[in-house]
Nucleic acid binder design. Sequence first.
DNA 1: AATTACTCCAACCGCTATTAC
DNA 2: AGTAATAGCGGTTGGAGTAAT
Length: 233
Amino acid sequence: MAYQGDKLRKGSWLEEEDERLTAFATLLGERKWDSIAILSGLMRSGKSCRMRWLNYLQPNLKRGHISAEEEQIVIQLHGQWGNKWARIARRLPGRTDNEIKNYWRAHLRKKTREEGNSQSKVYSSKPELLYQNGDSTSAWKYSIRDYNSADDHNIGPTDFSLEHYELPSMTYLNSSYETRLYDWIPRLSNDQSQAEIHGEGNGLDWCFCDPAWNSEDCDPGTVDSLGSLWDMN
DNA sequence: AATTACTCCAACCGCTATTAC
DNA sequence: AGTAATAGCGGTTGGAGTAAT
């Protein structure tokens, strides 16, 4: 392995190291981190380089505080999936799994415990999900009551209410949201047709998905109307 | 002003999954 | 098919900064 006999650096990264890693990652691509570590001359492990890039250096990362909207999403998805930080992070553009994990430990775990000392209490905050209609001009607000099951599909007909809403500015596929999404997923910028609208049944359920996502990541219920989530500023 | 307690977050570690050969 | 290398994930730790005493 690399650096036989040499000592690998650990701990905080210096600005110069960041610059060098950025240059090499940009040049060589975000793969083969051991090679990047060697070629860059950084006395770091490939793993350390990858971690630094993913959590701090890569473009399109949001910096700054988690917004209230993002917090709600984290609470909702954590209740649904548990400590699946990477999976949750995929629903929060610009946020890393590490960031969400830290935020949960620092803020939300305590908060949710205080609120009821159980996950069901989190669910009982009655999450409201928005489902866009087929005509893109309206949606159904899906308010869940007694949401104790981790499985959406177990919610019976009497467990939720549907309210119809007009959507003056919620047309995802023709809005600034689209611009932000394409910023975030460069691949989609090149070929928008690759983006998939996953619909089912009566057309109320939909999901704007990256084709690279697997089926479990495509969950119509967790795409909501919170446009500010896509605000990278 | 000094010390202690606490919070937050970057970074590391160990393990598993995936990919390449 | 088997093995090694690499990538990904989640848990944990250490240290810097801040608040409380």
